[in-house]
Nucleic acid binder design. Structure first.
Length: 228
DNA sequence: CCAGACGTTGTT
DNA sequence: GTCTGG
DNA sequence: CCAGACGTTGTT
DNA sequence: GTCTGG
């Protein structure tokens, strides 16, 4: 799955990489982006701007914003049928900008966090969906979810799910208005798979630790000299 | 028909 | 809003 | 995802 | 154990 990720590049780099602009919004470097926080997306409605939406999709029919806590990921296999994602899959797709994400490998009782990325933390786009939601006061909230798929063999020992990292040539297509469901599914079935990873400090566990230090490689606990 | 859910992950 | 369960 | 709270009454 | 907040 994907429950934490990063964007450790400057705004200008994002703008160049995705040929889109930040308008009113400002994004600081982020090492530890957690659900319910805002992060950078590019939507099918505004493919030339980079906007900040809340992570955790709140369906337009929701009565409570809290439902978003449960909607941080959407399974690519069932996305077209699930009531919470069906509409967004047809009408509201987006690119979720990232340059790495974190997975926790369970080993017995302990959980070892790892950083996973393409190349040396290249900027990439996760396949995402977004929604508009109006609260009881009439204020609008825009939110997104990250689509997941089976983990590639290379990282399967860490976790059996991972975000769909779009092939670069699929990014534009994913947010085209005319894209039909069949082709959208095809895109989800051919993600980037050349992932690199390394263990990082448990500092990443707490979202309060949004610091560059968590990018550093550490020796995983229990190694070397592992006896069991 | 109405009521209630609407999600993912992993249970080492 | 739409689907599932009762 | 992980961390941290998880309750009520009544109000110094 | 389960929910909320970050």
């Amino acid at each position: 799955m994907c429950g934490r990720f990063s964007i450790t590049k400057e705004e200008e780099e994002l703008e160049k990489r995705f040929a889109a602009r930040f308008y009113s919004e400002v994004l600081e470097k982020r090492y530890n982006i957690a659900p319910s926080q805002e992060s950078a997306v590019i939507t099918n409605k505004e493919p030339n701007s980079i906007q900040l939406f809340r992570w955790g999709l709140v369906p337009f029919w929701a009565k409570d914003v809290k439902i978003g806590y449960k909607m941080i990921n959407a399974r690519s296999e069932t996305i077209a049928e699930k009531p919470a994602f069906k509409y967004a899959f047809e009408k509201r797709r987006c690119l979720v900008i990232a340059d790495g994400f974190y997975e926790w490998q369970k080993k017995g009782k302990i959980k070892i966090p790892h950083r996973i990325m393409i190349g040396d933390s290249e900027l990439v786009a996760f396949a995402g969906l977004w929604e508009n939601w109006k609260d009881e006061k009439g204020d609008w909230l825009q939110s997104f979810t990250i689509i997941t798929t089976d983990a590639v063999p290379r990282i399967h020992h860490l976790h059996d799910r991972m975000p769909v990292i779009l092939r670069r040539e699929d990014e534009k297509k994913w947010i085209e208005e005319e894209l039909d469901a069949e082709e959208a599914k095809n895109i989800l079935q051919r993600p980037q798979t050349d992932l690199n990873f390394y263990p990082v400090s448990p500092l990443v566990n707490s979202p309060a630790n949004d610091v560059a230090e968590i990018l550093e490689r550490v020796e995983p606990p229990g190694e070397p000299g592992e006896l069991f």
